[in-house]
Amino acid sequence: MAKKTKAVSSKKRMASWGPGVLLISPSVILIGIFVYGLIGANIWTSMKDTHTAAQVSGREPSHFVFFDNFIELFGDPDFQHQLLNLILFTVVFLVGTLIIGFVWAWVLERPLKGEGIFRSIFMFPMAVSFVASGVVWRWLLNPAMGESASGLNRLFQQVGLGFLQNSWTQNITFGICAIALPAIWQLAGYVMALFLAGFRGIPEELREAARVDGATEWQMYRQVIFPQLAPIALSAVVIIGHMSLKSFDLIMAITDQRTYSTKVPAIGMYNAMTDNDYSNAAAIGTVLLVIVAIFVIPYLIHDSKAGKER
């Protein structure tokens, strides 16, 4: 009798969660193979000495070298320059989009005449691909000066601000910061939309309560409104931060893979792969994966804890 009861209960459990498992199993299998499986294959390749076309094709053997590729990579001045460029680009991109997006959202926080037009204008750059905008910004950021100046340098010349002319992307130290300008132009509207949704989601009762308590408009924003936007700001930092860490197409469209001043790890990975240096390419990919995980995993943990508290 006990065996029959157990069999019935197991059948009921199968009937309750069985269809759900069958429904998600194709996605789980595909993600397991094409995401985590390929991540594992990439890490495995990064620990081998596959550096030539002969090794890639199998004509010569590859050997397991553990972390030698990573040690050589971090000791390479070129890769150190790429990491420094990545930090500069991420900081400028992140700060620029957050400040501009927040200010736009603050201006549009109260309904205005023609607000829909302003929102459309601010959001329009998001509809343009990085490659398409990169072609335009390549002309705008032309480093030529003087008689041969074009783009922004020519504009500065014509309006009497010639002292603002500079070499843009050709500057060895800060050339990568010029690439952040089109990136900010494209994604500041997205950050604006996030903050605007946050502003509009704050109950009017909180504002009224602050005013009744005698708070000035600035005190109300500083002590009531802005703290409510902290989760939005954190989400924006994570989204924009991980996008900047993986930037590739915009840089390739504005300069190219040979321009030293704008090289980042993603460009270095592309160069290594096209030179059949699969192990170094995989090592750079693994480093980028770890950097992105450092950004994203704490956010996911924080978000999970916040969800449980709610």
Rank of each mutant, 00 (worst) to 15 (best):
I294C: 15
G96D: 06
L84Q: 08
F130Q: 09
K6Y: 12
G189W: 05
R207V: 10
G75E: 04
F130L: 10
N85E: 10
Q170R: 06
A2M: 11
Q158E: 09
W218D: 09
W168G: 01
L152S: 00
V191T: 12
T50S: 09
S10R: 15
S46R: 11
I301M: 06
V191P: 03
V128Q: 01
L245V: 12
F130E: 10
V8F: 09
V287Q: 03
A210D: 04
Q55T: 01
F93Q: 08
M47I: 10
L140C: 02
L83P: 00
R59V: 08
I267H: 01
A7L: 13
A41F: 07
V128L: 12
M1Q: 13
Q257I: 10
N276I: 00
F64P: 06
T173I: 11
L94T: 14
Q257K: 13
F130G: 06
G75L: 08
Y190S: 06
E217M: 09
L155F: 14
T169P: 07
S129W: 02
M220E: 15
F34T: 15
I240H: 01
P231W: 10
F295H: 07
I31P: 12
T216H: 02
E204K: 12
D76Y: 02
R258E: 12
P203D: 14
V103S: 05
P231C: 07
N153H: 00
V65D: 10
E147A: 01
Q228A: 13
M269S: 14
L194F: 13
L300R: 01
I24P: 05
A266D: 02
A183I: 04
H81A: 07
K308W: 12
S304N: 06
T5Q: 15
T262S: 00
P143K: 03
Y190D: 05
A209D: 08
V56G: 08
N166W: 04
Y36P: 13
L38H: 11
F102A: 04
L38I: 14
L108T: 04
L108R: 10
H63L: 08
T216C: 07
D68A: 14
I100N: 02
L250Q: 15
W17G: 11
A188I: 01
I291N: 01
V128Y: 03
F89E: 04
R154C: 00
W218F: 11
L196Q: 04
I184W: 03
S244P: 03
N69P: 05
A132C: 07
F102I: 09
G101N: 08
E205H: 06
S247E: 15
T274S: 13
W44P: 01
F199W: 04
V159Q: 03
L234T: 13
G285W: 00
I43L: 15
